[in-house]
């Protein structure tokens, strides 16, 4: 559990971090909260020559609302989201998800941006970001670009952030819709075996349902969503819709849950998340 030797540089601004990244290229890794990178380094699964610490770039450490959108700095910790009054009011799904991550120590250090960029297939954030149709603002050597949540989570441990780029902000809508996140956690790690975020728009009779932990990347349960489009969300209609929560998915399988069980849990948790979201209205 001792990492290979590496150099450490602290960037004091985003531009400096981008310059350092350009300079060191593939030899460098970005350090935010360190809760994915450092364990990987200690196991020597990751052996960067240079670690660029961006954790003190103040601009990226914020939650602000502007014109119905909330911009969350990539370095905002899980705990800051969990305890943000603004988010509790304007987008309560995020504090709920934050509270389900790891333990107090993890939530105090781990960042929302780091977690999303790491794109762990069992991470909690991808479900929420997909369900909220979040947008990811990514800074690169040639300026910024914005990627929709659906395109952001590419594959196992692969996000849309390219070499040389740094995630800057995550934009989510301020919403009056009710939402819920329900997680069936892997007992040892606390990561999701099946985590489902549901957002219910009662006026439009539309729902968004996103599932993490079940497949190689988090996904929108489109079958479930279309089943409830224009339909009153009742116990029965939800149960019917939830049956489709793993349709067309190739579930992961490991010692903690077989593919069958994961697909089953996706359906159970989709039902529970939808019902919880509806009940909150």
């Amino acid at each position: 559990m001792i990492p290979a030797a590496f150099d450490y540089v602290r960037a004091s601004s985003l531009n400096e971090a981008l310059d350092l990244l350009a300079k060191h290229g593939d030899d460098a890794k970005i350090l935010a909260g360190g809760h994915s990178l450092i364990p990987a380094m200690k196991l020597r699964l990751s052996q960067p020559k240079v670690v660029i610490d961006i954790s003190r770039i103040a601009d990226l450490h914020s939650v602000n609302q502007q014109n119905g959108k909330i911009a969350i700095g990539a370095l905002t910790t899980h705990y800051e989201i969990e305890s943000s009054d603004l988010l509790k009011r304007a987008c309560p799904l995020l504090p709920e998800v934050a509270g389900s991550i790891g333990d107090v120590q993890v939530r105090n250090k781990g960042t929302v941006g780091g977690s999303c960029v790491h794109a762990d297939p069992a991470g909690d954030w991808p479900a929420a970001m997909l369900a909220l149709d979040a947008e990811f603002e990514i800074a690169g050597p040639n300026g910024s670009r914005t990627v929709a949540a659906n395109d952001f989570f590419v594959d196992i441990l692969t996000s849309a952030v390219e070499p040389g780029e740094i995630l800057k902000f995550i934009h989510v809508p301020a919403t009056a819709n009710t939402a819920a996140y329900v997680k069936f956690a892997q007992k040892a790690s606390g990561f999701a075996i099946a985590g489902v975020a549901a957002v219910v728009d009662k006026t439009k009779k539309e729902v968004a349902v996103a599932v993490t932990g079940v497949a190689a990347k988090a996904y929108r349960a489109s079958g479930t969503e279309s089943s409830l489009r224009g339909v009153e969300p009742t116990a029965d209609s939800i149960a019917t819709a939830a049956e489709k929560a793993a349709d067309g998915i190739d579930p992961l399988s490991d010692i903690h849950a077989s593919a069958d069980f994961r697909a089953h849990l996706a359906r159970v948790q989709a039902k529970r998340a939808l019902w919880a979201a509806v009940s909150r209205g």
Partner: peptide, 23 residues
Amino acid sequence: LMERTVYDENGQLLTGEFMDYAI
């Protein structure tokens, strides 16, 4: 309820840390 040490068919230990071995 949760603890089990798992070796796969090749004898690789799949529960070699607290990420996989639940207590």
